[in-house]
């Protein structure tokens, strides 16, 4: 009987870990609930969940409702990582189809967590290229594209450094937006190209809170209104942080 209790506890802890990983890497509330329910049904348990932006509450019982386990876990604000979302989703299907044990889930979760990101230079280059493309799409010329490339590259670099030094999430975005517009603003100040303003506006687009806003809508449609509202507010604060950084450079260059 005691081993049964231990097992349910171990399993509950893993489910909470999975839920908090999904939450911090950018999955919608509905997806977290579906994934956790799928895994626990596959293992023969019943699970009830309360999902909020910063904490998860989980209560798990076995089928006869003899043993139960309840716990809370805080979720960490990490940043979007779709490799983890996709990996956990694949794992959840394999758990059902291949009848995994709790230890097997544990080892696979450790593997998923240790999967590497893209190399830093690759991320910087690709995002800077995206910034240049944005500039082109909004009607910039080649000179402005180069400005947007450099500004985005530098802005993202500043953001990564700020995140590494554990600054507040929103403050990191203010720094990044300020750094990017400081470069793009110089091009407006010295009149580089015909539509330098486009480069200025598009150099901060790598910071836009696309994931919070899209997840917010899908949460609210699902009926998770409070989770959705929390995400909207999170996205709005990010937008204000971007605007603040831009405003500071605009004051400096008097645009």
């Amino acid at each position: 009987m005691d081993t049964k209790k231990d097992e349910i506890r171990k399993f509950g802890k893993i489910l909470l870990e999975i839920g908090s990983l999904l939450m911090s890497s950018g999955a919608s509330t509905g997806r977290i609930r579906v994934t956790i329910n799928r895994i626990s049904e596959g293992m023969g348990y019943k699970t009830e969940l309360l999902i909020t932006q910063r904490a998860l509450v989980l209560s798990i019982t076995d089928e006869q409702e003899n043993d139960y386990y309840s716990s809370i876990k805080r979720t960490l604000p990490h940043g979007v990582n779709f490799k983890l979302v996709s990996g956990i989703s694949r794992m959840s299907w394999r758990i059902i189809n291949e009848k995994w044990s709790v230890d097997q889930i544990n080892t696979d979760l450790t593997r998923l967590k240790s999967l590497p990101h893209f190399p830093r230079l690759v991320i910087l280059t690709f995002v800077a290229m995206a910034g240049a493309s944005f500039c082109r799409l909004f009607g910039g010329g080649y000179l402005e594209m180069i400005v947007a490339f450099i500004a985005t590259f530098f802005g993202l670099f500043v953001r990564q450094e700020a995140i590494k030094r554990n600054y507040n999430t929103y403050l990191c975005i203010v720094f990044a937006s300020f750094a990017a517009t400081l470069i793009a603003g110089a091009s407006v100040y010295y009149g580089v190209g015909k539509s330098a303003e486009v480069a200025f506006a598009t150099s901060v687009l790598f910071l836009i809170p696309g994931v919070p806003f899209i997840n917010a809508l899908s949460d609210m449609i699902d009926g998770n209104i409070s989770a959705g509202v929390a995400r909207v507010i999170h996205g709005l604060i990010i937008s204000f942080a971007i605007a603040l950084g831009m405003f500071l450079s605009m004051l400096i260059y008097n645009i």
Binding site: F82, V122, I123, F126, M129, S133, L137
Partner: peptide, 24 residues
């Protein structure tokens, strides 16, 4: 055709930023 390329590159840049698996 030119816009097609720019839309694609912008989407790809964000895919890299969000750490989408390379196969996707």
């Amino acid at each position: 055709f030119e816009k097609l390329i720019w839309f694609g590159i912008a989407a790809m840049g964000f895919a890299v930023l969000f750490n989408v698996p390379a196969r996707a």
